[in-house]
């Protein structure tokens, strides 16, 4: 195995074009090093991007918030650019593993490993994030929701790497909520998580809602049926309850035949509701503040 520490992105793409799928990108290494030691991965080369500034950090452009894939979970938690309407993304990053894991693990790794339980993926899905993917002499964009192909597999060619994650900065009447159910607080793998992005008008009518679940299917995914039901409705106890019931049915159908189907579909209702209320609080909080 060859260990490579490129000086810039250009060099990374050069090596990726040379080795293709035989080279693995390593950033935090919190998953990959374990897999290599277990013999589950046996790359010819490792390309380390963990200290590559070009692929790190969070920036704000005119339209988007852009996150470098080698940005650590700790950096997301501490970023002042991510305002309180994006609390759900910070909550998700804070719920990852332990301080040690958050100091090394990266958001790009979370996406590219395509684990069903990746904590920061549901909030990024609810934000309708776009991935920028580059190879030598090529560059493309793909919606995160279209990226996952199977458990552990995202749509990346052998010579490509993820170079940017971007999403629109929420407006004042928009909010991103997150809630995760784990077996214990620290180091617990996510058993179930939800992220909800919400925009409501002054009449409490839902203008936009995007719901993403984690650890339910083969990969984190949007819950389109529930989104469709909620869009345009006035948010109140009744609509929330209807949405919960619909969600329970959708998830039970998806997991049918698995032992966890009943538990997960019932638990999902509560976890979804908490994420929704967290999002609602962010939208309303700002509205109330403005009235004063």
């Amino acid at each position: 195995m060859e260990a490579i520490k490129p000086k810039n992105l250009e060099e990374v793409l050069e090596y990726k074009s040379k080795y293709k799928g035989d080279a693995k990108i390593i950033a935090g290494g919190t998953d990959l090093i374990i897999k290599i030691r277990k013999g589950e991965e046996n790359p010819k080369a490792l390309i380390d991007i963990s200290s590559l500034n070009e692929l790190k950090g969070i920036r704000e452009t005119l339209e988007y918030i852009e996150i470098g894939p080698a940005t650590t979970f700790t950096e997301i938690c501490e970023c002042i650019l991510l305002n309180k309407n994006l609390k759900g993304l910070k909550d998700a990053a804070r719920s990852v593993g332990s301080p040690q894991i958050r100091n090394r693990g990266t958001v790009g790794g979370n996406i590219c490993n395509a684990s069903p339980a990746a904590d920061t993926v549901p909030p990024l899905l609810a934000l309708d994030s776009i991935l920028v993917i580059e190879g030598k002499g090529k560059k493309r964009e793909i919606y995160l929701k279209d990226f996952f192909k199977d458990k552990g597999r995202g749509e990346l060619e052998g010579d490509e790497i993820l170079t940017k994650i971007k999403f629109k900065n929420p407006l004042k009447n928009q909010g991103l909520g997150f809630y995760k159910l784990g077996l214990r607080k620290a180091l617990a793998i996510s058993r179930l998580s939800f992220a909800v992005f919400l925009e409501i008008d002054e009449m409490n009518r839902i203008e936009i809602v995007r719901i993403a679940s984690g650890a339910i299917g083969k990969f984190p995914m949007r819950e389109l049926e529930v989104e469709e039901y909620l869009t345009g409705r006035i948010i109140n106890e009744n609509t929330i309850e209807e949405a919960e019931t619909l969600l329970e049915r959708v998830i039970f159908e998806r997991l049918k035949g698995r032992q966890t189907a009943k538990f997960k579909s019932i638990a999902a209702k509560g976890v979804f509701k908490k994420a929704l209320l967290n999002a609602l609080y962010l939208c309303k909080g700002v509205n109330d503040f403005e009235k004063n």
Partner: peptide, 16 residues
């Protein structure tokens, strides 16, 4: 920052 030294490869620690 604290890290797990079992999850860092030595070559990644270059210049740190």
């Amino acid at each position: 920052k604290i890290v797990n030294s079992c999850l860092v490869l030595a070559f990644q620690a270059d210049k740190s």
